[in-house]
Design a protein around this nucleic acid. Structure first.
Lengths: 145, 145
DNA sequence: CTAACAATTGAAAGTAGTTTTCATTTGGCA
DNA sequence: TGCCAAATGAAAACTACTTTCAATTGTTAG
């Protein structure tokens, strides 16, 4: 990692090491606040701006991407081997990933047909996950008796 | 329109009428600022909050949806007969819509296979449009001579 | 090994878009 | 026509994000 960053002209620091490590431990759909909290459990002296800047850096070197589901919070998602989309549950705020290779292929065709050069694909489905919709059903049943 | 809102428990006012009309005239991917500007050309006395609240209302009654491409600006997009996705050019900030019926169908299958109940589909492709990539090519050619 | 210097850091302030508050006005119904 | 909940405009508040700045620290050239 140190070497990887060096070749891109960045230095390794103790803070950066901790932040990178923590990010990859959390791994998925992490907000700045969440990562900041995690980092602070290990080192109370690390600043918020440093965590933020390093998340941006992780994106810049191509290891993560921003995810925006429209609640005003930017999340950072590790770049995976294959492109993926998200099922986002608006009840429990959980993310489920799904393979988006086929969809990205379709989208590339759509884009190409307008000579649009795609760089980034965002495929998000908002709704209610199995667990939450089951809960809602149970609640509903209780009320109607 | 007045009738439509009345049945949902909302009043019609001159400001609301103007804001709704202006929104549907602009129609696509409108930010609060853009709509506010448009409204103000017709009536300088309308407040920003009123425009914002009415955009939210247009969404609430199901005539528009929020679009978030990750630049920190919420845009409001008229709900169309068929679901559509966006090609967003990061150079000229323009949107192009495309029919997303087939994609939504695929996504619904994906969601169903996890017993996830989809409510909203966001399909956005970020990249460079034909016009801008042509410009870039021309610039590049000039530089290399 | 060390000096030089650009990159990095933490705290604090700044920014921008969004949302709420509050006093006042107004539309729609009895 | 009068009532009252809904709507409005201005301003303030809020929130997440971003920049500034002085101090510190990795890395590299000598």
């Amino acid at each position: 990692m140190r070497e990887f960053l060096r070749t891109k002209g960045f230095k390794m620091t103790p803070q950066r090491e901790l932040i990178f490590r923590s990010f990859f431990e959390l791994g998925k759909h992490v907000s700045v606040d969440e990562l900041y909290a995690k980092v602070r459990t290990k080192d109370r002296s690390v600043g918020y701006a440093t965590v933020w800047r390093n998340l941006k850096l992780i994106c810049k070197v191509g290891l993560a991407e921003e995810v925006n589901i429209g609640d005003g919070i930017t999340r950072y998602d590790r770049v995976t081997k294959f492109p993926h989309g998200h099922l986002y549950c608006t009840e429990c705020k959980s993310f489920t990933e799904f393979d988006a290779r086929a969809l990205v292929e379709s989208l590339t065709k759509v884009a190409n047909s307008s000579r649009f050069e795609p760089e980034l694909f965002k495929i998000e489905v908002l709704g209610v996950c199995a667990h939450c919709s089951k809960q809602a059903e149970t609640r509903h049943r209780r009320q109607s008796h």
